[in-house]
């Protein structure tokens, strides 16, 4: 399963990253090498193995259902690249 330039361009779209033509070339070579290395895992028969997503397999961690202080609006907006008094401002979502 070799990674092509076209695959890399598609992944860049999925990852929301604009890549230049040079970056695409470089990334294709480097990623193909790493992905080829990943093939090492194929040596192992893992059909009977449960996946392990976390080192500490704790589930159902709840806190008491009590109202606690949360981040205020001004603090939440303080780092926004662009904002008004109550919202984040972004370019048009549809059309130009």
């Amino acid at each position: 399963m070799s990674l092509t330039r076209q695959d890399v361009a598609k992944v860049a779209t999925l990852a929301r990253l604009n890549l230049t033509e040079d970056e695409l070339d470089m990334m294709t070579g480097q990623l193909a090498q790493v992905v080829e290395y990943f093939e090492l895992l194929g040596e192992l028969d893992t059909s009977e193995v449960e996946p392990m997503a976390h080192a500490v397999e704790r589930t159902d961690v709840f806190r008491d259902d009590r109202v606690a202080r949360s981040l205020g609006r001004d603090a939440a907006l303080a780092n926004a690249p662009k904002r008004d008094d109550e919202c984040y401002r972004v370019p048009a979502v549809l059309g130009d």
Partner: peptide, 27 residues
């Protein structure tokens, strides 16, 4: 649309090469 273009450009300009590689590998 402009919003998505803004994401793509911001991430391309804001992240360095190694971060882009990891994001690409993971994606």
């Amino acid at each position: 649309p402009p919003l998505v273009e803004m994401y793509r450009r911001s991430r391309a300009e804001g992240f360095g090469a190694e971060v882009k590689r990891r994001v690409m590998l993971g994606t």
